[in-house]
């Protein structure tokens, strides 16, 4: 039999003994109103919970506080007295944070695919864009809370370090500078998130992020040194370079923000848009 014609035509209302006493074939069992849609806040709550409910997730979260503390201790132990300033602590904490936060964002997306829990997640919430939105919102929340934690740890380290070294405490990070650091970390995390929805595989997305964050700057830096035109164009097209600038200060004019926007469109928005399109259309295996 090779055609798809049916061997036996089913009778729509074939009598079936006792089952017929409890069910009316062809009619829905309940006439209750349709259930309420799932609110976004509920999805966000679920995604927040997923960040903490595995050992790897929990340790990543703990590592945020841990690296802040370890970096502060390192500054106190090794920095010369003249370098016991808030800026030293902010820089020491900021670097590992720029690694850990993107990994948290990446794992929140890719674990659904690598661990295949997405089969359940996307069956319960077929509007996959809402799940991705909830993950993005929670990643942003984690980033901001982490930066506050890091700021507090850094401030305590600065107070403690100054007391130990017997020097005056130096608060040489302005609100604008701190905002720049937060923005830089959030944008770095966003790049990780974008690569995660584009690649949908944990090692792949982590490697892609490290290439972007650690390997690419060497290449672009070399190119900028050799080619004058690229040195001029670099802030407009090299997002990592532009974002790294935020650690020093916020852009002080329209051009700086425009550079952030154009380079961000290339390295963040484009992969995010392609990734989102793929998440919505691809098979969840």
């Amino acid at each position: 039999m090779s055609s798809n014609e049916t061997l036996v035509k089913p009778e729509p209302n074939a009598p079936k003994g006792i089952q017929m006493t409890t069910a009316t074939v062809g009619a829905p069992r309940r006439t209750a109103a349709a259930p309420a849609p799932i609110p976004f806040a509920r999805l966000a709550k679920v995604e927040l919970r997923k960040m903490f409910d595995t050992r790897s997730g929990l340790w990543l979260m703990i590592s945020i506080a841990a690296v802040a503390v370890i970096a502060s201790i390192a500054v106190i132990a090794f920095a010369p007295d003249s370098a016991i300033t808030f800026q030293s602590f902010a820089a020491a904490i900021g670097f590992p944070m720029a690694i850990v936060l993107p990994i948290i964002a990446i794992m929140s997306v890719t674990s659904e695919y690598s661990q295949r829990s997405g089969l359940t997640t996307f069956t319960l919430v077929p509007q996959r864009g809402r799940v991705i939105g909830a993950k993005a919102a929670i990643s942003l929340l984690v980033a901001i809370v982490s930066m506050v934690v890091a700021g507090v740890v850094g401030a305590l380290g600065n107070l403690l370090g100054a007391a130990i070294a017997g020097v005056d405490t130096v608060w040489n990070v302005s609100v604008a500078q701190f905002t720049g650091i937060v923005l830089a970390n959030v944008l770095g995390m966003a790049v990780g998130f974008a690569y995660a929805i584009l690649i949908r595989n944990t090692p792949g997305a982590v490697v892609a992020y490290f290439v972007y964050a650690l390997a690419l700057p060497t290449v672009t830096g070399l190119l900028a040194g050799l080619q004058d035109w690229f040195n001029t164009a670099r802030p407009w097209v090299d997002f990592n370079y532009t974002v790294t600038g935020l650690f020093d200060k916020l852009p002080d004019g329209g051009q700086g923000w425009a550079q952030l926007a154009t380079s961000g469109a290339i390295w963040l928005l484009l992969p995010a848009a392609i990734g989102l399109r793929q998440v919505l259309r691809s098979e969840v295996k």
Binding site: A34, P35, A36, P37, I38, V46, R49, K50, D53, T54, R55, S56, G57, S111, Q115, R116, S117, G118, L119, T120, T123, L124, V125, P126
Partner: peptide, 30 residues
């Protein structure tokens, strides 16, 4: 469907569950 889980129960692949979560946590998320 507004809330598919309360209308359709689906089990396509029992091995497609996060290995690092407890069974109880898996159910709590749903």
């Amino acid at each position: 469907l507004p809330n598919p889980g309360v209308q359709v129960g689906v089990l396509l692949d029992a091995s497609a569950q996060h290995a690092g979560r407890t069974g109880r946590e898996t159910l709590i998320l749903s």
